[in-house]
Design a binder for these strands. Structure first.
Lengths: 172, 172
DNA sequence: AAACACCTACCTACCAAGTGATAGTTTATG
DNA sequence: CATAAACTATCACTTGGTAGGTAGGTGTTT
Protein backbone atom coordinates (compact mmCIF):
# COMPACT_ATOMS: atom_id res chain seq x y z
CA UNK A 1 0.00 0.00 0.00
CA UNK A 2 1.50 3.31 -1.13
CA UNK A 3 1.83 6.29 1.16
CA UNK A 4 -0.86 8.00 -0.88
CA UNK A 5 -3.27 5.13 -0.36
CA UNK A 6 -2.43 5.07 3.33
CA UNK A 7 -3.13 8.79 3.59
CA UNK A 8 -6.51 8.33 1.96
CA UNK A 9 -7.41 5.40 4.18
CA UNK A 10 -6.57 7.30 7.37
CA UNK A 11 -8.32 10.45 6.17
CA UNK A 12 -11.39 8.39 5.29
CA UNK A 13 -11.68 7.03 8.82
CA UNK A 14 -11.35 10.47 10.32
CA UNK A 15 -13.90 12.04 7.99
CA UNK A 16 -16.36 9.22 8.63
CA UNK A 17 -16.04 9.91 12.34
CA UNK A 18 -16.35 13.67 12.38
CA UNK A 19 -16.64 15.20 8.94
CA UNK A 20 -14.37 17.11 6.63
CA UNK A 21 -12.74 19.18 9.36
CA UNK A 22 -11.92 16.14 11.45
CA UNK A 23 -8.51 15.57 9.88
CA UNK A 24 -5.49 17.71 9.22
CA UNK A 25 -2.50 17.25 6.94
CA UNK A 26 -0.26 17.07 10.02
CA UNK A 27 -2.30 14.32 11.66
CA UNK A 28 -2.51 12.01 8.69
CA UNK A 29 1.13 12.66 7.81
CA UNK A 30 2.21 11.65 11.33
CA UNK A 31 0.16 8.48 11.16
CA UNK A 32 1.80 7.27 7.95
CA UNK A 33 5.23 8.47 9.06
CA UNK A 34 5.90 11.40 6.72
CA UNK A 35 5.89 15.18 7.08
CA UNK A 36 2.82 17.31 6.47
CA UNK A 37 4.55 19.18 3.65
CA UNK A 38 4.94 15.87 1.80
CA UNK A 39 1.20 15.33 1.77
CA UNK A 40 1.00 18.33 -0.56
CA UNK A 41 3.06 16.36 -3.07
CA UNK A 42 0.24 13.85 -3.40
CA UNK A 43 -2.64 16.30 -2.93
CA UNK A 44 -2.01 19.96 -3.84
CA UNK A 45 -4.74 21.19 -1.48
CA UNK A 46 -6.99 19.73 1.17
CA UNK A 47 -9.94 20.11 -1.21
CA UNK A 48 -8.13 17.88 -3.72
CA UNK A 49 -7.67 15.21 -1.06
CA UNK A 50 -11.32 15.47 -0.02
CA UNK A 51 -12.53 15.23 -3.60
CA UNK A 52 -10.34 12.22 -4.41
CA UNK A 53 -11.49 10.56 -1.21
CA UNK A 54 -15.17 10.93 -2.08
CA UNK A 55 -14.53 9.85 -5.67
CA UNK A 56 -12.75 6.64 -4.69
CA UNK A 57 -15.35 5.94 -2.00
CA UNK A 58 -18.09 6.22 -4.60
CA UNK A 59 -16.26 3.94 -7.04
CA UNK A 60 -15.62 1.32 -4.37
CA UNK A 61 -19.25 1.48 -3.26
CA UNK A 62 -20.58 1.02 -6.78
CA UNK A 63 -18.17 -1.83 -7.42
CA UNK A 64 -19.42 -3.56 -4.26
CA UNK A 65 -23.01 -3.13 -5.42
CA UNK A 66 -22.41 -4.82 -8.73
CA UNK A 67 -24.79 -4.95 -11.62
CA UNK A 68 -28.56 -4.97 -11.11
CA UNK A 69 -29.15 -7.37 -13.97
CA UNK A 70 -26.56 -9.81 -12.67
CA UNK A 71 -28.19 -9.79 -9.26
CA UNK A 72 -31.61 -10.39 -10.75
CA UNK A 73 -30.15 -13.16 -12.93
CA UNK A 74 -28.93 -14.85 -9.74
CA UNK A 75 -32.48 -14.71 -8.44
CA UNK A 76 -31.62 -12.23 -5.67
CA UNK A 77 -33.29 -8.97 -4.71
CA UNK A 78 -30.99 -6.00 -5.49
CA UNK A 79 -32.57 -3.93 -2.70
CA UNK A 80 -31.57 -6.59 -0.19
CA UNK A 81 -28.02 -6.46 -1.56
CA UNK A 82 -28.02 -2.68 -1.28
CA UNK A 83 -29.25 -2.82 2.31
CA UNK A 84 -26.66 -5.43 3.25
CA UNK A 85 -23.81 -3.33 1.87
CA UNK A 86 -24.95 -0.35 3.92
CA UNK A 87 -25.27 -2.52 6.97
CA UNK A 88 -21.80 -3.93 6.40
CA UNK A 89 -20.32 -0.43 6.20
CA UNK A 90 -21.86 0.45 9.56
CA UNK A 91 -21.22 -2.82 11.40
CA UNK A 92 -17.76 -3.66 10.04
CA UNK A 93 -16.23 -0.21 10.36
CA UNK A 94 -18.59 1.21 13.03
CA UNK A 95 -18.59 4.36 10.94
CA UNK A 96 -21.02 6.60 9.04
CA UNK A 97 -21.25 6.60 5.28
CA UNK A 98 -18.56 9.01 4.10
CA UNK A 99 -20.77 10.80 1.60
CA UNK A 100 -23.69 10.84 4.00
CA UNK A 101 -21.75 12.86 6.51
CA UNK A 102 -20.23 15.06 3.82
CA UNK A 103 -23.65 15.56 2.26
CA UNK A 104 -25.06 16.78 5.57
CA UNK A 105 -22.35 19.42 5.84
CA UNK A 106 -22.44 20.14 2.13
CA UNK A 107 -22.75 23.92 2.39
CA UNK A 108 -19.44 24.28 4.18
CA UNK A 109 -17.43 22.11 1.78
CA UNK A 110 -15.13 23.22 -1.05
CA UNK A 111 -16.92 22.97 -4.36
CA UNK A 112 -14.63 20.21 -5.61
CA UNK A 113 -15.81 18.03 -2.76
CA UNK A 114 -19.47 18.96 -3.19
CA UNK A 115 -19.31 17.74 -6.79
CA UNK A 116 -18.07 14.32 -5.70
CA UNK A 117 -20.70 14.00 -2.96
CA UNK A 118 -23.37 14.84 -5.51
CA UNK A 119 -21.93 12.19 -7.81
CA UNK A 120 -22.26 9.58 -5.05
CA UNK A 121 -25.96 10.20 -4.56
CA UNK A 122 -26.71 10.59 -8.27
CA UNK A 123 -25.12 7.21 -8.95
CA UNK A 124 -26.89 5.64 -5.98
CA UNK A 125 -30.27 6.91 -7.11
CA UNK A 126 -29.65 5.71 -10.65
CA UNK A 127 -28.72 2.25 -9.38
CA UNK A 128 -31.74 2.10 -7.08
CA UNK A 129 -34.05 3.31 -9.83
CA UNK A 130 -32.90 0.44 -12.00
CA UNK A 131 -33.23 -1.99 -9.10
CA UNK A 132 -36.77 -0.97 -8.24
CA UNK A 133 -37.73 -0.99 -11.91
CA UNK A 134 -36.40 -4.54 -12.21
CA UNK A 135 -38.48 -5.41 -9.15
CA UNK A 136 -41.59 -4.13 -10.90
CA UNK A 137 -42.12 -1.17 -8.60
CA UNK A 138 -44.88 1.16 -9.77
CA UNK A 139 -42.93 4.33 -8.80
CA UNK A 140 -39.22 3.53 -8.97
CA UNK A 141 -38.12 7.17 -8.51
CA UNK A 142 -40.04 7.40 -5.26
CA UNK A 143 -38.85 3.99 -4.10
CA UNK A 144 -35.23 4.90 -4.87
CA UNK A 145 -35.11 8.08 -2.79
CA UNK A 146 -37.04 6.36 -0.02
CA UNK A 147 -34.59 3.47 0.13
CA UNK A 148 -31.43 5.55 0.33
CA UNK A 149 -33.00 8.08 2.73
CA UNK A 150 -34.07 5.38 5.14
CA UNK A 151 -30.65 3.75 5.15
CA UNK A 152 -28.65 6.97 5.52
CA UNK A 153 -31.00 8.21 8.22
CA UNK A 154 -30.94 4.94 10.14
CA UNK A 155 -27.14 4.99 9.98
CA UNK A 156 -27.01 8.51 11.32
CA UNK A 157 -29.36 7.78 14.20
CA UNK A 158 -27.54 4.57 15.10
CA UNK A 159 -24.35 6.61 15.38
CA UNK A 160 -26.09 9.35 17.36
CA UNK A 161 -27.55 6.85 19.82
CA UNK A 162 -24.41 4.72 19.68
CA UNK A 163 -26.50 1.60 19.16
CA UNK A 164 -26.49 -0.34 15.90
CA UNK A 165 -29.65 -2.20 16.78
CA UNK A 166 -31.61 0.85 15.62
CA UNK A 167 -30.25 0.30 12.12
CA UNK A 168 -31.29 -3.33 12.24
CA UNK A 169 -34.74 -2.42 13.50
CA UNK A 170 -35.22 0.21 10.78
CA UNK A 171 -34.21 -2.12 7.98
CA UNK A 172 -36.07 -5.27 8.85
CA UNK B 1 -32.94 39.45 22.29
CA UNK B 2 -29.97 39.19 24.63
CA UNK B 3 -26.40 38.83 23.42
CA UNK B 4 -26.43 35.27 24.67
CA UNK B 5 -29.51 34.43 22.64
CA UNK B 6 -27.98 36.12 19.60
CA UNK B 7 -24.82 34.07 19.99
CA UNK B 8 -26.84 30.85 20.12
CA UNK B 9 -28.89 31.80 17.08
CA UNK B 10 -25.83 32.57 14.98
CA UNK B 11 -24.00 29.46 16.17
CA UNK B 12 -27.06 27.36 15.34
CA UNK B 13 -27.09 28.53 11.74
CA UNK B 14 -23.41 27.81 11.34
CA UNK B 15 -23.62 24.35 12.88
CA UNK B 16 -26.62 23.46 10.74
CA UNK B 17 -24.58 24.40 7.67
CA UNK B 18 -21.36 22.62 8.43
CA UNK B 19 -21.33 20.91 11.80
CA UNK B 20 -19.77 21.56 15.17
CA UNK B 21 -16.48 22.84 13.79
CA UNK B 22 -18.17 25.30 11.47
CA UNK B 23 -18.21 28.16 13.96
CA UNK B 24 -15.63 29.80 16.19
CA UNK B 25 -15.95 32.05 19.22
CA UNK B 26 -14.36 34.88 17.24
CA UNK B 27 -16.81 34.59 14.34
CA UNK B 28 -19.97 34.58 16.40
CA UNK B 29 -18.60 37.31 18.68
CA UNK B 30 -17.93 39.54 15.67
CA UNK B 31 -21.41 38.99 14.33
CA UNK B 32 -23.12 40.11 17.53
CA UNK B 33 -20.62 42.92 18.08
CA UNK B 34 -18.68 41.76 21.13
CA UNK B 35 -15.20 40.30 21.69
CA UNK B 36 -14.46 36.60 21.61
CA UNK B 37 -13.27 36.65 25.22
CA UNK B 38 -16.72 37.87 26.26
CA UNK B 39 -18.34 34.78 24.78
CA UNK B 40 -16.60 32.81 27.52
CA UNK B 41 -18.59 34.79 30.06
CA UNK B 42 -21.81 33.25 28.73
CA UNK B 43 -20.34 29.84 27.83
CA UNK B 44 -17.25 28.72 29.75
CA UNK B 45 -16.14 26.41 26.93
CA UNK B 46 -17.18 25.66 23.38
CA UNK B 47 -18.60 22.33 24.54
CA UNK B 48 -20.92 24.20 26.92
CA UNK B 49 -22.18 26.33 24.07
CA UNK B 50 -22.71 23.28 21.85
CA UNK B 51 -24.56 21.41 24.58
CA UNK B 52 -26.84 24.34 25.37
CA UNK B 53 -27.51 24.78 21.67
CA UNK B 54 -28.61 21.18 21.21
CA UNK B 55 -30.66 21.28 24.41
CA UNK B 56 -32.60 24.39 23.39
CA UNK B 57 -33.05 23.04 19.86
CA UNK B 58 -34.56 19.86 21.26
CA UNK B 59 -36.90 21.77 23.57
CA UNK B 60 -38.07 24.05 20.76
CA UNK B 61 -38.60 21.06 18.47
CA UNK B 62 -40.68 19.20 21.05
CA UNK B 63 -42.71 22.30 21.78
CA UNK B 64 -43.46 22.67 18.08
CA UNK B 65 -44.58 19.04 17.90
CA UNK B 66 -47.11 19.44 20.67
CA UNK B 67 -48.99 16.67 22.37
CA UNK B 68 -49.94 13.48 20.53
CA UNK B 69 -53.28 13.21 22.31
CA UNK B 70 -54.17 16.81 21.48
CA UNK B 71 -53.41 16.19 17.80
CA UNK B 72 -55.51 13.06 17.76
CA UNK B 73 -58.30 14.92 19.56
CA UNK B 74 -58.28 17.47 16.71
CA UNK B 75 -58.73 14.59 14.29
CA UNK B 76 -55.30 15.04 12.74
CA UNK B 77 -52.57 12.48 12.08
CA UNK B 78 -49.53 13.13 14.35
CA UNK B 79 -47.17 11.59 11.80
CA UNK B 80 -48.31 14.17 9.25
CA UNK B 81 -47.63 16.92 11.79
CA UNK B 82 -44.18 15.47 12.47
CA UNK B 83 -43.40 15.32 8.76
CA UNK B 84 -44.58 18.89 8.23
CA UNK B 85 -42.35 20.22 10.99
CA UNK B 86 -39.34 18.52 9.48
CA UNK B 87 -40.26 19.87 6.08
CA UNK B 88 -40.67 23.35 7.50
CA UNK B 89 -37.20 23.24 9.07
CA UNK B 90 -35.68 22.34 5.71
CA UNK B 91 -37.70 24.65 3.49
CA UNK B 92 -37.89 27.72 5.74
CA UNK B 93 -34.27 27.77 6.87
CA UNK B 94 -32.76 25.78 3.99
CA UNK B 95 -30.74 23.99 6.65
CA UNK B 96 -30.18 20.50 8.02
CA UNK B 97 -31.61 19.37 11.32
CA UNK B 98 -29.09 20.48 13.95
CA UNK B 99 -29.09 17.20 15.83
CA UNK B 100 -29.06 15.19 12.61
CA UNK B 101 -25.78 16.73 11.58
CA UNK B 102 -24.35 16.52 15.08
CA UNK B 103 -25.50 12.91 15.37
CA UNK B 104 -23.66 11.99 12.18
CA UNK B 105 -20.42 13.40 13.55
CA UNK B 106 -21.15 12.12 17.03
CA UNK B 107 -17.81 10.41 17.62
CA UNK B 108 -15.85 13.62 17.29
CA UNK B 109 -18.03 15.67 19.65
CA UNK B 110 -17.37 16.55 23.30
CA UNK B 111 -19.33 14.25 25.57
CA UNK B 112 -21.52 17.08 26.85
CA UNK B 113 -22.78 17.60 23.31
CA UNK B 114 -23.21 13.89 22.62
CA UNK B 115 -25.53 13.64 25.60
CA UNK B 116 -27.78 16.36 24.24
CA UNK B 117 -27.88 14.85 20.76
CA UNK B 118 -28.85 11.53 22.26
CA UNK B 119 -31.59 13.29 24.20
CA UNK B 120 -33.00 14.72 20.97
CA UNK B 121 -33.39 11.32 19.35
CA UNK B 122 -34.60 9.60 22.50
CA UNK B 123 -37.38 12.18 22.86
CA UNK B 124 -38.21 11.98 19.17
CA UNK B 125 -38.50 8.20 19.26
CA UNK B 126 -40.67 8.35 22.37
CA UNK B 127 -42.98 10.87 20.73
CA UNK B 128 -43.19 8.83 17.51
CA UNK B 129 -43.80 5.63 19.44
CA UNK B 130 -46.80 7.26 21.10
CA UNK B 131 -47.97 8.66 17.77
CA UNK B 132 -47.83 5.32 15.97
CA UNK B 133 -49.45 3.58 18.91
CA UNK B 134 -52.28 6.11 18.77
CA UNK B 135 -52.58 5.36 15.06
CA UNK B 136 -53.02 1.69 15.82
CA UNK B 137 -49.71 0.57 14.29
CA UNK B 138 -48.90 -3.08 14.91
CA UNK B 139 -45.18 -2.38 15.53
CA UNK B 140 -44.85 1.19 16.82
CA UNK B 141 -41.14 0.83 17.72
CA UNK B 142 -40.31 -0.16 14.15
CA UNK B 143 -42.56 2.53 12.72
CA UNK B 144 -40.95 5.18 14.95
CA UNK B 145 -37.34 4.51 13.92
CA UNK B 146 -38.44 4.20 10.28
CA UNK B 147 -40.22 7.55 10.34
CA UNK B 148 -37.36 9.56 11.81
CA UNK B 149 -34.74 7.75 9.70
CA UNK B 150 -36.57 8.47 6.49
CA UNK B 151 -36.96 12.16 7.32
CA UNK B 152 -33.40 12.72 8.51
CA UNK B 153 -32.03 10.81 5.53
CA UNK B 154 -34.19 12.67 3.03
CA UNK B 155 -33.08 15.96 4.55
CA UNK B 156 -29.45 15.00 4.26
CA UNK B 157 -29.75 13.92 0.64
CA UNK B 158 -31.72 17.02 -0.30
CA UNK B 159 -28.86 19.09 1.12
CA UNK B 160 -26.25 16.95 -0.63
CA UNK B 161 -28.00 17.27 -3.98
CA UNK B 162 -29.00 20.85 -3.24
CA UNK B 163 -32.56 20.13 -4.30
CA UNK B 164 -35.45 20.10 -1.84
CA UNK B 165 -37.72 18.27 -4.24
CA UNK B 166 -36.03 15.04 -3.18
CA UNK B 167 -37.37 15.60 0.33
CA UNK B 168 -40.85 16.15 -1.04
CA UNK B 169 -40.60 13.04 -3.20
CA UNK B 170 -39.41 10.91 -0.29
CA UNK B 171 -42.18 12.04 2.04
CA UNK B 172 -45.22 11.87 -0.18
C1' DA C 1 -26.56 60.88 52.00
C1' DA C 2 -22.29 58.66 51.55
C1' DA C 3 -19.43 54.72 51.49
C1' DC C 4 -19.00 50.24 50.67
C1' DA C 5 -19.25 45.63 48.63
C1' DC C 6 -20.86 42.99 45.01
C1' DC C 7 -22.46 41.56 40.41
C1' DT C 8 -23.14 41.58 35.37
C1' DA C 9 -21.34 42.08 31.07
C1' DC C 10 -18.28 43.42 28.82
C1' DC C 11 -13.14 44.86 27.69
C1' DT C 12 -7.67 44.56 26.44
C1' DA C 13 -3.95 41.79 25.91
C1' DC C 14 -2.06 37.69 25.50
C1' DC C 15 -0.88 32.60 24.83
C1' DA C 16 0.23 27.95 23.07
C1' DA C 17 -1.28 25.08 19.76
C1' DG C 18 -2.84 23.98 15.45
C1' DT C 19 -4.18 25.18 10.50
C1' DG C 20 -3.19 24.88 5.23
C1' DA C 21 0.24 26.21 2.33
C1' DT C 22 4.86 27.53 0.14
C1' DA C 23 9.90 27.64 -1.34
C1' DG C 24 13.72 25.42 -1.81
C1' DT C 25 16.54 21.11 -0.82
C1' DT C 26 17.79 16.30 -0.40
C1' DT C 27 17.54 11.38 -1.15
C1' DA C 28 16.33 7.17 -3.33
C1' DT C 29 14.98 4.65 -7.55
C1' DG C 30 14.68 3.24 -12.23
C1' DC D 1 20.84 11.68 -15.22
C1' DA D 2 15.91 12.36 -14.38
C1' DT D 3 12.13 11.79 -11.85
C1' DA D 4 9.55 10.67 -7.68
C1' DA D 5 8.96 11.23 -3.06
C1' DA D 6 10.33 12.72 0.52
C1' DC D 7 12.65 16.52 3.49
C1' DT D 8 13.65 21.30 6.38
C1' DA D 9 12.16 25.53 7.50
C1' DT D 10 8.98 28.85 7.60
C1' DC D 11 4.80 31.59 6.83
C1' DA D 12 0.39 34.05 7.96
C1' DC D 13 -3.57 32.93 10.10
C1' DT D 14 -7.10 30.85 13.17
C1' DT D 15 -8.25 28.25 17.14
C1' DG D 16 -10.07 27.87 22.18
C1' DG D 17 -8.83 29.63 26.32
C1' DT D 18 -6.93 32.66 30.28
C1' DA D 19 -5.65 36.67 33.32
C1' DG D 20 -6.84 40.67 34.82
C1' DG D 21 -9.18 45.13 34.29
C1' DT D 22 -13.41 48.29 34.07
C1' DA D 23 -17.91 50.74 33.67
C1' DG D 24 -22.35 50.68 35.40
C1' DG D 25 -25.92 49.01 38.19
C1' DT D 26 -27.89 47.12 42.71
C1' DG D 27 -28.15 46.67 47.39
C1' DT D 28 -26.52 47.22 52.07
C1' DT D 29 -24.34 49.28 55.84
C1' DT D 30 -22.82 53.25 58.46
Amino acid sequence: MSKKEELLKIAENKVRQGGYNNFSFREIANEVGIKSASVHYHFPTKADLGAELAHQYTDAFLAALGDVDDIKARGENPIDIYTQIFKGALLTDDKMCLCGLLGAQNESLPEKVQVEVKRFFDKNLTWLHAAHTANGEANPAHAAITTVSLLEGAMMISKALNDHSYFTLATQ
